[in-house]
């Protein structure tokens, strides 16, 4: 991704290692908001990843006898849900699904959309027209509607909603990487690279990717929050995770009926979605300014 990785792993004793990305990290560290968001996200991601180790209970075992205990009940710090399952445990386990459903589609869409966009921008002409018009067709639908339509057609389930979200996220990434590539392609240093004998593949791999990676990554990071909210939305309407899988969107749905008796508990999954997507958004903003060297 950075200049150093592209340059192959060979040792280069003549160069000091003070790359672009270490500069970005240095600037990011000076921004308190970004660092706070990063901390929150790392904590939530780690807690979800190690949920089996740190969760106090079993996410799928409940008891009707202790349903809807309020927040602060001894043994159940965040209370219990409508089936008497420990909320803290379910939130931790739910994060695994929700975060995966947020991050994985963006990563896949970045790979597919980024590749298509770069090719469209670099080659131009008919190739560009075909790729961009195809993206435009997908763009014509409101993104949530498109995700619902695809997930609805494929049926509920993890893989299907993953496909639905990825398809929805591809067009904007094609557009962003295409316009970035088109801009970079016409710059003098691309001509200079051609003049020094670089082939099309080298130019794309080194000079185009090196220059569009920043803006495209920042844009992709801003899509993380969108993806998490959409994933939760799909589960909420029954097109994502299936019960009894813990997932924040699904939990929000099942706790809906208890909103009058235990409003705080019913709101907890929503709070998690809110915190995670807000943190991703603010971090993405921070990253944008940290990467902007000019």
């Amino acid at each position: 991704m950075s200049a150093d990785t592209l340059a192959s792993g060979n040792a280069m004793p003549l160069r000091a290692s003070r790359g672009y990305w270490s500069g970005v990290w240095l600037r990011l560290r000076r921004d308190p908001v970004s660092m706070a968001c990063l901390t929150v996200l790392v904590l939530i991601i780690l807690a979800s990843a190690f949920a089996p180790l740190i969760a106090p209970g079993d996410p799928s075992v409940g008891s009707v006898a202790r349903r809807l205990r309020p927040v602060g009940t001894p043994g159940y710090i965040l209370g219990t849900d409508e089936l008497g399952r420990d909320m803290l445990t379910r939130l931790l386990f739910g994060g695994r699904m929700s975060l995966t459903m947020g991050i994985l589609p963006v990563a896949l869409a970045l790979l597919i959309g980024g590749t298509l966009g770069t090719i469209a921008g670099f080659v131009g002409g008919l190739t560009n027209a075909i790729i961009m018009r195809a993206a435009d067709i997908l763009f014509a639908f409101p993104s949530v509607l498109l995700a619902v339509a695809i997930a609805g057609a494929l049926g509920a389930g993890f893989v299907n909603s993953l496909v639905a979200l990825t398809v929805v996220l591809i067009p904007p990434l094609i557009r962003v990487s295409e316009s970035a590539t088109t801009q970079v392609r016409s710059l003098d240093f691309v001509e200079a690279a051609r003049a020094s004998g670089a082939g099309a593949f080298t130019i794309i791999r080194v000079h185009i990717l090196g220059n569009i990676m920043g803006p495209v990554l920042v844009y992709a990071s801003s899509l993380l929050s969108v993806a998490i909210i959409m994933a939760a939305g799909l589960s909420f309407i029954g097109l994502g995770a299936r019960p009894p899988t813990p997932e924040w969107g699904l939990m929000l749905n099942t706790l809906r009926n208890s909103i009058y008796s235990q409003p705080l508990i019913a709101a907890l999954p929503g709070v998690m979605i809110f915190i995670v997507s807000l943190s991703f958004n603010l971090l993405s903003d921070g990253l944008r300014s940290a990467m902007d060297v000019k």
Partner: peptide
């Protein structure tokens, strides 16, 4: 043949040096 001709047999210096270098790589690289 063209790739080896460019840069090896014939090289070019551009008018605007600030634009002819790729901003994300060091000059040495």
């Amino acid at each position: 043949e063209l790739a080896s001709y460019r840069g090896n047999d014939v090289a070019m210096i551009f008018q605007e040096p600030s634009l002819a270098f790729d901003p994300v790589f060091t000059v040495g690289r």
